[in-house]
Amino acid sequence: MAEKPLLSVRNLTMIYKTRKGPVSAIDDVSFDLKRGESLGLVGESGCGKTSVAMALLRLLPDNAQITGGQILLDGMDLTTLSEEEMQNVRWKRISMVFQAAMNALDPVYKVGDQIIEAIERHERDIDPAEARKRVEALFHLVGIDPKMADRYPHEFSGGMRQRAIIAMALACNPDLIIADEPTTALDVIVQDQVLRELRQVQKQMGMSMIYISHDIAVIAEVAERIAIMYAGRLCELADAVEIFKRPRHPYTVALMSAFPSIVGEKRPLVALGGEPPDLLFPPPGCRFHPRCPRALDICKQQQPPFEDIGGGHYLACWNPAPVAEVQS
C-alpha cells in the first residue's frame, strides 16, 4: 500500500425498484483505482456496467437506490454528499463519455458552446476568450477542425460527435474519466482511431480512466487492469496480462476462449450454455453457478468472497480453474 488510490469503491450495492420488485443491478462491488491507471470493466449486456458508472456520478434514475457501500474519491464518500456538493464533483473530478454519445449533445446549441458551458460551470470567473481557446485546443487534440465549434450537432458526423464528446469530457481536466462503450456506434476503423486517441490523451494528461465494454478485445487495447462483471457482481479483477495469461474464474475462462485470437494462443473453446440470470430473481449463492461447468454444492448456497489471491489478483470463486489448464 504505497500509494493511496484515487477511487476506492467499497461493497457498493444498488437496486432498481420496479413494479415487479427490486432489480439487483449492483451487488457488493469493490475495487480500487490508482491515479493515472486505466481499468477495463467487462461483462455481458445487462450485467450492470452502466449502472456502476452512473452510480459513481450519482446520476441514477429516480427508481434507483444505493442500499449499501461507499464510493471514496480521495477519501471523500460520494454516497453521502448533498446534491449541490455532488454537482461540484461532476465533470470537475469525474467526467464521462456516454454509451449513447451520439445523442449526448443538445441539438439546439452549438457544440462549442456546450463545452464552454461545462468549463464556465466549474471555473466561474474564466475569461470567455480563454474558454474559447481551450475548446479549440481540445478540438485539435481529438482531431476535429476547431472551426467546427461553431456548428450544431446535426452538422457533425457520428465519429465527429463522438470526438466532440470526448473533448467535452476532457474540458475540465478531470481526475477520472469514465468511458461507457464510447465506440459501439462507430464503424470499426473509426472505432479504432477514437480508441487510440482516447488512450493517448488519457496517458498524456495523467488521468485515470474506467473503460466499459462488453468486448474484451477492445478492453485489451486500452486497459492496464481488467475487472470482469457478471450479473451485478465482480467475479475477477487483475492486471490485463494476468487476466489473459491466468484467468481463474470459470466465467473469465469462458470469455477468454470466446476470443482466442487476442493472445494468439490456442485454447479449448468452452461453450457457455444458458442465459444470463434475471436480476429480479438472482440465483442464490454464486450468481454464475447455473451456467458454471465447475459448480459445486457450496456454490449454490454461499456467495464466494471477493478476495486477493496474490499480487493484486482478486477472485470470487469456490472452485477456480487451475492455472495450468489454460496455460498449456
Partner: peptide
C-alpha cells in the same frame, strides 16, 4: 429521457439550468 439531459446533469449543471436551458428549450419545439 434524452441523453443530452443526462449529459447536462453530468456536467454538474444545477437542476434549474438543466430544466430551463436544456429540457424546456427542446420541449418548446
Amino acid at each position: 429521457r434524452e441523453d443530452y439531459i443526462m449529459a447536462a446533469r453530468a456536467k454538474g449543471l444545477p437542476e434549474r439550468v438543466v430544466r430551463d436551458k436544456h429540457a424546456a428549450r427542446n420541449a418548446v419545439l
